Amino acid sequence: MSLIDGLVSADKLPLTLAFVGFLLTFIITRTITRMIRAGRGPFRDNVSGGVHIHHAIPGIVLTISGAFTSVAVDGQSPGAEISAVMIGIGASLVLDEFAMILRLQDVYWSEQGQLSVQVVTMTGAVLGLWVLGLNPLTGDRGFGSGHLALLVVGAIHIGALLLCVEKGKYSTAVVGAFVPPLAWFAALRIARPQSRWARKHYGPDKVERARTRAEKFDRRFGHWGLGIEDLVAGKPTDKPSVPPPSPTGIGDGERRMR
């Protein structure tokens, strides 16, 4: 059986459709948002009644609808394929604004907003591996010691990737998704000075040490990753438009997200 035949077989087609829908939606979404930002083309921000309706909203609707549809059809065609497309498109729309949802602020074009692209990249990488058949839970001989080893290594790898993200090493996490030793090594190294890990666990001396390390690393290698991220996500604004909290503790960005 050829690779193409395997991808469109009855048991693989829904996952393949979800993967293709996920990637195409991300490419189309980023193209449209870049055009809106540049003031080109027919597209404009979706504003209704003074409220900016972000594309994560239809994404949530599609993802939930696709999930319920998938359960209802119990793997039967064509419902399984339809629900897979809905989930792929919906998940892509939601994750494209992951940073905004995480911060409850409109950081889409800021440096913090590039976290969304990194999350989409990691999710796409995992989906791609599943589509190609890398699944430690399945096999012709059932669950054995080889599967257990893969599960243990996979759990360690996912933990290392999450720790990289917690330490502010987003680009390393993306590359480390494909090169596990890189993620493991980076997870053990000192965090970026502005990361959540540094704020929670480092004192002033260690923060200064982290800042020195980060500046040295960025001078040597930082422009490579930043150039790729800017190409995909759009160059961040110099001063991100993040509204200050209102007296009630709910910022304008939060109101727009509701």
Score class of each variant (00 low, 15 high):
Ala99Phe: 02
Arg192Phe: 01
Ile36Gln: 14
Trp109Met: 09
Ser48Glu: 05
Gln112Cys: 04
Val120Ser: 03
Pro243Arg: 09
Gly251Lys: 00
Phe19His: 13
Ser9Trp: 04
Leu104Lys: 13
Arg220Asn: 10
Gly75Gln: 03
Arg141Pro: 04
Ser83Gly: 12
Ser65Cys: 10
Arg189Met: 13
His223Val: 12
Ile156Met: 14
Phe26His: 12
Pro247Phe: 03
Leu162Asn: 07
Ser145Met: 13
Gly227Ser: 12
Gly79Met: 01
Lys12Ala: 14
Glu97Ala: 15
Gly144Cys: 03
Glu81His: 14
Arg103Val: 09
Val85Trp: 04
Gly234Tyr: 00
Pro136Val: 03
Ile60Ser: 09
Glu97Arg: 14
Asp5Ile: 12
Ile156Leu: 15
Ala198Lys: 00
Ser116Val: 00
Ser2Thr: 10
Arg255Cys: 08
Leu163Met: 15
Gly222Ser: 03
Thr121Leu: 11
Gly133Met: 05
Gly49Leu: 03
Gly142Ala: 02
Ile89Asp: 11
Ser83Leu: 07
Val61Ala: 12
Pro193Trp: 02
Val165Ser: 06
Asp106Gly: 06
Val179Phe: 11
Ala38Leu: 10
Gly159Met: 06
Ala80Lys: 15
Thr212Cys: 08
Tyr202Asp: 02
Gln114Glu: 11
Val152Asp: 04
Ser83Asn: 03
Ala210Tyr: 01
Met1Gly: 10
Asp11Lys: 11
Arg189Tyr: 11
Lys200Cys: 07
His223Tyr: 10
Leu132Tyr: 05
Asp5Pro: 07
Thr29Asp: 03
Val107Ile: 05
Gly49Asn: 06
Ile4His: 09
Met257Gln: 11
Phe221Val: 14
Val119His: 02
Lys239Gly: 06
Val242Pro: 00
Ala210Pro: 15
Val107His: 02
Arg34Asn: 08
Arg211Tyr: 11
Gly41Met: 00
Leu62Phe: 07
Met35Cys: 11
Glu208Asp: 12
Val94Trp: 07
Lys12Asn: 09
Ser241Ala: 14
Val120Thr: 10
Arg196Thr: 10
Lys235Ala: 04
Ala177Cys: 11
Arg219Val: 09
Pro136Tyr: 04
Ser2Lys: 13
Val61Gln: 08
Glu254Gln: 13
Ile87Tyr: 09
Val8Arg: 06
Met1Lys: 13
Ala56Cys: 13
Leu104Val: 04
Val73Ala: 10
Ser48Val: 15
His223Asn: 08
Gly79Ala: 00
Gly249Glu: 08
